[in-house]
């Protein structure tokens, strides 16, 4: 079962990467882009048929390794 873990910098945590992307977009002439935040998506193939169980497992993985909850938040979706 495929599970997507989206990891984002927490609100209030400086995201210089997002800022730089925002500046670059403005430089390319894209007007009206507000705040830009950059995170990452981790795709997991989990040997599990129960969606709830797969989600629970991925959340545990996120808390232990995939995200650093001091600075990042995460969201798990079963694809």
């Amino acid at each position: 079962m495929k599970v997507l873990v989206t990891v984002m910098p927490k609100v209030g945590v400086l995201d210089p990467q997002g800022k730089a992307i925002g500046h670059a977009l403005a430089g390319l002439g894209f007007a009206g882009v507000g705040e830009v935040r950059a995170g990452k998506v981790i795709e997991l193939e989990i040997a599990e048929t129960d969606a709830a169980r797969a989600k629970q497992l991925a959340e545990e993985m996120a808390r232990k390794l995939l995200a650093n909850t001091v600075i990042e938040s995460f969201r798990v979706e079963v694809a």
Binding site: V13, L14, P16, Q17, A20, N68, V70, I71
Partner: peptide, 9 residues
């Protein structure tokens, strides 16, 4: 705490 990307990137 944590160490983030340098503010200047």
């Amino acid at each position: 705490g944590a160490l983030l990307r340098n503010a200047t990137l």
